[in-house]
Every structure is written in structure tokens, then in C-alpha cells.
């Protein structure tokens, strides 16, 4: 049986671990609230942009010289997967989930004979995928040093993807990230970026059938500047959802860790008290038997 001193030290160490996990849980909860607010604030822009794209896309669709961002390069050979994950760990299975999802997707595409390229955003997902698919990496982006991701960061990623498209480095681009369903559930999911999946026009129920818009300058020109912006908006949204999901996941993980530490402390304390009792009993027996022998 472990000595009393050793037990005492273990109890103390678990106690400080519990303090840390508890603090991390509180911090994650506060950050989660902020991340959720930011995600909420970004929604109006995305909604309006979707509405504009819907009506524009309907006007331009089917034209032979439609922009590449809208129709892609026409091929289906090279796939670019943009994998968004967290920059830090200690968030349960958050990063592993999105990594696993991406891995399954890469295998699926490769067994269908496609070429896959990976652009990893976030350090954890990058390390996860690099082990197996290091040769497919087209780039790695991390916002680890930043306090919060801004729209400029997303715009930068978007312009990088656009540049790759213009160079003809891929045909199809999709985004893999943890969709934020609620605080405890994040679902890894895939969303196609290029060719752009256009929302249905006229789905705005409030205003009934939309009147036909006039465009200034032409539809094509507006679309040409709207599409890169839309790409950035999609990426921005995925970044925000990842941030919110990350903190949600971290909060749950740290809550569990705190509870486990509490259970462990109870067990160790029980063990400690039993050992102490046993020691006392042993000493008493020694004294009594010593006295009887005299």
C-alpha cells in the first residue's frame, strides 16, 4: 500500500489539476459567448449576399462565358479540400472529428481516381492530416497568434484560393469544417465552394415574388466582384463556426475533466483515510502486544 505521504501528494496534484480544468471551462464559456455573438452578427451580411447572388445567378446561369468561380474549370479531376480546425487542443474530439472526416473524404476521392490537394487552416487539423497525407499539402494557414479571426483573414484565404484556381491548380474546391449545431454538438461537414452552389432565387417568402432587378454595371461585372466576396464570406462563416464550436467543445471537455478529477479526489481521500486508520490500528496492536509480553 502506498505511503501516507505519497497519497497526500497525489491528492494535492489532482486538486490543482481540477482547479486548472475548472478555470479553463469558465474561460471557454466566456469565449464561447463572444464567438456566438460574432457568428450572429455576421449573419445579416451573408443572408443579403445570398439573396443578391440568387437573383444574379439566375440571370447569368447557362451563359458560356460565366465566371470560373461560378462554374469551375469544367473538370472534375483535381479536388482541393480546405480543412478548417482549431489551433489548440484540449477540446475533446473536436479536432480529431474534423480530421477523421477529412481523411475519409480523401480516401474516398482517391479510390475514385481523383487527385486531392489539401489546404489546412488551423494547426491541429494540419498535424493530424500531415502524418498521412503530407505529400498532398498545398498549404497551411494558422491564426494561432491572433486574438480573434477577422474578415480580412478570411478574405486573404479566399484570394489565395482564387489565385490557385486561376493557375489551374484544381477543378473543384470544397470546405470541410465543424458545423456548429449547438453548444454540445458540432457536426463535421462538407460544403462545396467552387463551382459555387447558388441559392435558389426568389426564396424570400416575406416579399413574395421578387421583381426583376436592373443591374449597374452589367450582371457579369457585378458577379465578377461579388463571387470572390462570397467566397470570403463562406470561409469567414466557417472560421466563426469553428471558433464557436471549438470553445463549446472545450467547455464540455473541461467540464468532464473537472468532474473526473473530483471523483478521483474522493477515491484517493477514502484510500488515504483507510491507510491512516490501518496504520493506527497496527501501532495499537504493537503497543498492546508489547505490554502483554512484559
Amino acid at each position: 500500500m502506498a505511503s501516507l505521504k505519497a497519497l497526500r501528494m497525489r491528492i494535492n496534484s489532482v486538486k490543482s489539476t481540477r482547479k486548472i480544468t475548472q478555470a479553463m471551462k469558465m474561460v471557454a464559456a466566456a469565449k464561447l459567448r463572444r464567438a456566438q455573438q460574432r457568428a450572429e452578427a455576421a449573419r445579416p451580411y451573408a443572408e443579403r449576399m445570398e439573396r443578391m447572388l440568387g437573383s444574379l445567378g439566375a440571370a447569368v446561369a447557362g451563359q458560356p462565358d460565366a465566371p470560373r468561380l461560378l462554374v469551375g474549370s469544367g473538370g472534375d479531376q483535381v479536388h482541393l479540400l480546405v480543412v478548417v480546425s482549431g489551433d489548440r487542443g484540449l477540446a475533446g474530439a473536436f479536432n480529431t472529428n474534423v480530421g477523421r472526416f477529412a481523411r475519409a473524404r480523401v480516401r474516398e476521392l482517391e479510390s475514385a481516381g481523383k487527385t486531392v490537394k489539401i489546404l489546412a487552416i488551423g494547426r491541429k487539423g494540419a498535424t493530424f492530416l500531415r502524418r498521412e497525407f503530407g505529400s498532398r499539402f498545398a498549404g497551411e494557414i494558422s491564426f494561432a497568434g491572433k486574438k480573434a479571426v477577422g474578415f480580412e483573414d478570411a478574405a486573404e484565404v479566399a484570394s489565395r484560393i482564387t489565385a490557385m484556381l486561376e493557375e489551374g491548380e484544381f477543378d473543384v474546391c470544397s470546405l470541410i469544417y465543424n458545423r456548429f449545431r449547438n453548444v454540445i454538438t458540432q457536426v463535421p461537414s462538407e460544403q462545396q465552394l467552387i463551382p459555387a452552389a447558388l441559392p435558389e432565387a426568389g426564396s424570400d417568402a416575406q416579399e413574395g415574388p421578387q421583381a426583376l432587378y436592373e443591374y449597374e454595371p452589367t450582371e457579369e461585372e457585378i458577379l465578377a466582384s461579388l463571387l470572390p466576396q462570397n467566397l470570403a464570406v463562406q470561409i469567414y462563416r466557417s472560421l466563426l463556426e469553428t471558433t464557436a464550436g471549438f470553445y463549446g467543445s472545450q467547455m464540455t471537455a473541461m467540464d468532464n475533466a473537472t468532474r473526473n478529477a473530483g471523483e478521483m479526489i474522493n477515491k484517493l481521500t477514502l484510500n488515504y483515510n483507510r491507510t491512516r486508520q490501518a496504520n493506527i490500528t497496527k501501532e495499537l496492536i504493537e503497543i498492546i502486544s508489547g505490554a502483554e509480553a512484559v
Binding site: S55, L56, A211, L212, Y213, E214, Y215, E216, P217
Partner: peptide
């Protein structure tokens, strides 16, 4: 400041999308 010149908008303007 529309792409092709300043544009004043009053209530009841015809639907438009402008850069």
C-alpha cells in the same frame, strides 16, 4: 456612389443591384 455615377435613391425606386 454607384459604379457609373452618383445615384440618388428615393422611396419607391425601381429594383436594382448596383456595384
Amino acid at each position: 456612389p454607384a459604379a457609373e455615377g452618383e445615384m440618388g435613391v428615393l422611396p419607391g425606386h425601381a429594383p436594382m443591384i448596383v456595384a
